[in-house]
């Protein structure tokens, strides 16, 4: 049987699709300060995966996605519930909920599912290198199954963003204004987190949790340093994710290192570059501007007074 795409291309395409799906959602997480909730969700779904395996004895992608999705929702709602008591800060609420769900998953794995292709490494570290070998058949053609799965998720995220662009934008920047205008910030926020959870779950069935979390956080953070408007931020975030995907694969092959890890490293490198050299918010750029301004103010006073109303920024 023929494979539709070569192994290399399948891996790169998987990573690019993942980067697109995550890059679309990441900016909203950064702006809503919910970055770490994505990390929490990525870990909290473990008991869902284990439970599906114990109940149905399967690792079929759809069953796993549903099981994990349920626990993602439990995690998000649990964090909200604890935070709403007003007794615990949001970060501590996250720190209470996701470790306990993860612990339940670990107990499930070690007690009941040991030695049956469900070890922690494969769910947490994941291995994008194996994606070409897990295939589905379509009309006699063999296709790495991560491609249709991630393709669907990417499409769904894109449609969500286009349909709810206005709602997402207004709830992100001004929740009270959104509420006054009849758009529920809680509802939109839940929708976003469910999209994140579904993306994460689908993705680490094929690429591992850590790469998903990286793709959600790092490209969006990089883009936040480079842009000041929402649409460019989303576009740049997707672009950075693509750079990480392609560059990561290239360097992983040449260094013979973990593909997911190398992608993460390339993303981190992009972030570092942006942190230092971004035109407006970069550390070095800012330092240069500051020293220039300082030398201006320290120098002799300008002989011609500046015209009123034109202030230098």
């Amino acid at each position: 049987m023929d494979r539709v795409v070569s192994d290399d291309l399948a891996i790169i395409l998987t990573a690019v699709l993942l980067g697109t799906a995550c890059g679309l959602l990441g900016p909203f997480l950064i702006l809503k300060r919910q970055v770490l909730l994505s990390d929490a969700v990525a870990h909290a779904v473990l008991p869902g995966i284990v439970l599906v395996f114990l109940l149905f004895g399967s690792r079929a992608p759809l069953a796993v996605i549903v099981g994990a999705g349920v626990f993602a929702v439990i995690c998000v709602l649990g964090v909200e519930l604890i935070r709403n008591t007003g007794l615990v800060h949001a970060d501590a609420a996250i720190g209470l909920v996701f470790p306990v769900l993860f612990a339940l998953g670990v107990i499930g794995v070690t007690e009941f599912a040991e030695g049956v292709h469900l070890d922690l490494d494969s769910t947490i570290y994941g291995e994008i290198a194996f994606t070409p070998f897990r295939t589905w058949e379509f009309f006699g053609l063999e296709l790495a199954r991560s491609l249709p799965l991630l393709g669907t998720v990417t499409l769904v995220n894109l449609v969500l963003l286009i349909l709810f662009w206005k709602e997402l934008k207004v709830t992100t920047f001004d929740p009270s204004f959104a509420k006054v205008n009849g758009i529920s910030p809680t509802l939109v926020s839940r929708l976003l987190l469910i999209a994140v959870a579904v993306t994460a779950v689908t993705a680490f069935e094929s690429v591992g949790a850590i790469l998903v979390v990286t793709m959600l956080i790092v490209p969006a953070a990089t883009s936040y340093l480079l842009t000041v408007r929402l649409l460019p931020m989303v576009v740049v975030s997707v672009l950075v994710a693509w750079v990480a995907a392609v560059g990561g694969y290239g360097s992983a092959v040449s260094l013979d290192a973990s593909i997911g890890g190398a992608m993460g490293m390339v993303a981190a490198f992009c972030f570092l570059l942006a942190l230092l050299f971004a035109p407006k918010y970069g550390f070095i750029t800012r330092t240069i501007v500051r020293t220039r301004r300082r030398s201006l103010t320290a120098g002799p006073p300008p002989s011609v007074p500046e015209p009123a109303g034109r202030r230098s920024a």
Binding site: V35, I210, V213, T214, I217, V218, L255, S258, G264, A268
Partner: peptide, 17 residues
């Protein structure tokens, strides 16, 4: 929170490599 997330994922990726 973003700083924490970036450091977490970058260091972990480095560790895996």
């Amino acid at each position: 929170d973003a700083a924490i997330g970036v450091v977490l994922t970058s260091f972990f990726s480095l560790g895996i490599v």
